[in-house]
C-alpha cells in the first residue's frame, strides 16, 4: 500500500514557538485516520503544514507521492479549513464559493460543467436548495457544510478536514458521517482532525493523538478520557468560570436537560 500522506520529522514554528515538534505521520491510500488531541495540541497547525498553508521549519511532506509544492497533484487533494470563512465585504453565493473549489494549481478557470458539479457537491451535503443563497445569510453549520462541498467538488483522492463537525448540530453530523462513509468506501483517503470521535467513530480505522505538538499515540482509536461521554459528565471548558449562570445578566435561566 502506498502512502497518501508521508510526513517525516515535521517541525512547525509560529512566532518563534515550536507548535509541531518532529512529527512523523504516514497515512496509507484508502485509510481513514483521525487526528486527536486537546485544544492547542497542534492538530490544526500540523494539517495546515501538510497542505502548505504554514511553512515547515524542518522535515518533509509528500502528498500522493509528490514532495509538497507545485508538483503535488492538487486537483486530487481536498482541504476543509477549520474556521468558518469570515463573511467578506462582497456577497457570494454558496455555488460561487463551491465553484472556487474546482480550481487548483493546474487549473485557473473553472471547467465548463463547473456549476453543475458545484450544485451536485452542495446537494451531497444537503444544501442543494441553497445554491443561490448568499453565504453570509447561512447559519454557521451550513457555512461549514459549504466549505466541505468546496473540498468535495473536485472529487479528491485525499481529503483533509479540520474539525468538520465542530459547531454542527447532531442530525447534520450524522448526514456528514454518511457522506464521509460513502467517500471512504469509494477509496478516498481521509485525515480528519477531531476533538472527539462522535458520529464519525464507526469510520475511523486508526487514530493519531498529539500532545504538546508531539505524537503520543498512533494506533487503534483510543477510548475517550474517563467518563468523558458518560451520563452526568460535566464538560469543563477553560472559560466556563467567566460567567456565573445563576447571576446571568439576562436574568433568564430556563430549565434545560439533554435529550436522552
Amino acid at each position: 500500500m502506498s502512502e497518501a500522506i508521508d510526513a517525516r520529522g515535521v517541525v512547525v514554528e509560529l512566532g518563534g514557538a515550536p507548535i509541531v515538534r518532529s512529527v512523523d505521520l504516514a497515512v496509507g491510500e484508502g485509510e481513514v485516520v483521525a487526528l486527536l488531541g486537546a485544544n492547542g495540541s497542534g492538530k490544526s497547525t500540523l494539517v495546515r503544514s501538510l497542505v502548505g498553508v504554514v511553512p515547515l521549519a524542518a522535515g518533509s511532506v509528500r502528498l500522493l507521492g509528490a514532495t509538497l509544492g507545485r508538483q503535488v497533484p492538487w486537483g486530487d487533494v481536498g482541504y476543509v479549513p477549520q474556521r468558518v470563512s469570515a463573511t467578506s465585504g462582497v456577497p457570494a453565493t454558496a455555488c460561487e464559493v463551491v465553484l472556487s473549489g474546482t480550481l487548483h494549481g493546474r487549473r485557473l478557470r473553472p471547467p465548463r460543467d463547473g456549476r453543475e458539479r458545484a450544485c451536485a457537491a452542495l446537494a451531497a451535503v444537503g444544501l442543494g436548495a441553497e445554491a443561490d443563497t448568499a453565504v453570509r445569510t447561512l447559519s454557521g453549520g451550513q457555512q461549514q457544510r459549504v466549505l466541505i462541498a468546496r473540498a468535495l467538488v473536485r472529487q479528491p483522492r485525499l481529503l483533509l478536514l479540520d474539525e468538520p463537525v465542530a459547531g454542527v448540530d447532531v442530525p447534520s453530523q450524522q448526514t456528514f458521517a454518511r457522506a464521509l462513509a460513502e467517500l471512504a468506501a469509494a477509496g478516498t483517503t481521509v485525515l480528519v482532525v477531531l476533538h472527539e470521535l462522535g458520529a464519525l467513530a464507526p469510520l475511523i480505522q486508526r487514530a493519531v493523538v498529539l500532545r504538546h505538538g508531539a505524537v503520543v499515540h498512533d494506533g487503534a482509536p483510543p477510548r475517550p478520557a474517563p467518563d468523558h461521554a458518560a451520563a452526568g459528565h460535566e464538560h469543563i471548558h477553560p472559560h466556563d468560570g467567566d460567567v456565573d449562570p445563576v447571576h446571568d445578566e439576562s436574568g433568564v435561566t430556563p430549565t434545560v436537560r439533554w435529550q436522552p
Binding site: 495546515r48 497542505v51 502548505g52 498553508v53 507545485r70 503535488v72 492538487w74 487533494v77 482541504y79 479549513p81 470563512s85 467578506s88 457570494a92 460561487e96 464559493v97 465553484l99 472556487s100 473549489g101 474546482t102 480550481l103 487548483h104 494549481g105 493546474r106 485557473l108 478557470r109 473553472p110 463547473g114 466549505l147 468546496r150
Partner: peptide, 23 residues
C-alpha cells in the same frame, strides 16, 4: 473578468487558495 474565479478564490479565502496549490 477572465480570471474571475481564480481571483475570487484568492480574495475570498487565501488559505484555501494556498491549500489548493493556486499560485
Amino acid at each position: 473578468l477572465g480570471l474571475r474565479t481564480a481571483l475570487f478564490a484568492v480574495c475570498h479565502d487565501e488559505e484555501f487558495a494556498r491549500a489548493a496549490g493556486l499560485p
